[in-house]
Simulated scan of single mutants.
Amino acid sequence: MADKHLDPDVLSALREVMEDGFSTLIDTFLADCETRLQVLRQASTAAQLSETAHSFKGSSSNMGAVRLAELCGQLEQDAKKSPTANFGQSIADIDSEFAIVRPLYEIERQRSPAAS
């Protein structure tokens, strides 16, 4: 199941590059996701939605959260195409996916030698 949500190759490469900083990287990413989700929920314009979804997509992709990046990319495109649409369902989907990947990242952090 994790492969659908997290790319193991990306995580492995990050673990290798970051070494002792890997668990800190995960903590930073998860906190950043929380912040971006708040911004998405409270966004008052399609431009704000699109910009936040774009940066969320980039960080998710860099961290190997493939499905989360995909959902953010879709929201980014939709907000550009139909600025007056209701994006509540798209934001809910992103929220749900984050609820799935968060514990997966927690497990990855525990697997990191620096976590001890």
Rank of each mutant, 00 (worst) to 15 (best):
D3Q: 11
D3C: 06
K4V: 13
L6T: 11
D7M: 02
P8D: 05
S12P: 04
S12M: 09
S12I: 04
A13V: 10
L14S: 12
R15Y: 10
E16C: 15
E16V: 03
V17A: 08
V17W: 01
M18K: 02
D20A: 15
G21Y: 03
G21W: 00
G21T: 12
F22G: 00
S23E: 12
S23G: 10
L25A: 08
D27S: 11
D27P: 02
T28N: 05
T28E: 10
L30H: 09
A31Y: 13
D32V: 09
C33W: 04
C33Y: 03
E34A: 11
E34M: 07
R36I: 04
R36S: 06
R36N: 06
R36F: 08
L37R: 14
V39K: 06
V39W: 04
L40N: 07
Q42S: 10
Q42K: 13
Q42P: 01
A43T: 07
S44H: 13
S44C: 15
T45W: 03
A46C: 14
Q48D: 08
Q48E: 15
Q48T: 14
L49Q: 09
S50H: 06
E51S: 13
T52N: 02
T52I: 05
A53N: 01
A53R: 00
H54R: 08
S55N: 05
S55P: 04
S55R: 04
F56T: 02
K57M: 07
K57D: 04
K57C: 02
G58N: 00
S59R: 00
S61D: 06
S61E: 06
N62T: 15
M63H: 02
V66L: 07
V66E: 05
R67L: 11
R67D: 09
A69H: 09
A69R: 08
A69G: 11
C72I: 01
G73R: 11
L75W: 01
L75K: 00
E76C: 03
E76G: 04
Q77C: 06
Q77D: 04
Q77G: 04
A79C: 02
A79I: 01
A79H: 00
K80M: 13
K80G: 13
T84C: 14
A85N: 11
A85G: 08
A85K: 14
N86M: 13
N86Q: 15
N86T: 12
F87D: 03
G88E: 05
G88W: 12
Q89C: 09
S90D: 11
S90F: 09
I91R: 04
I91T: 04
A92C: 10
D95H: 11
D95R: 14
E97V: 08
A99M: 09
A99E: 13
A99P: 10
V101R: 00
R102S: 08
P103H: 06
P103Q: 09
L104S: 00
L104F: 06
L104C: 02
E106R: 13
E106Q: 13
I107A: 12
R109K: 11
R109P: 03
Q110S: 12
P113A: 01
A114D: 12
S116L: 12
S116N: 12
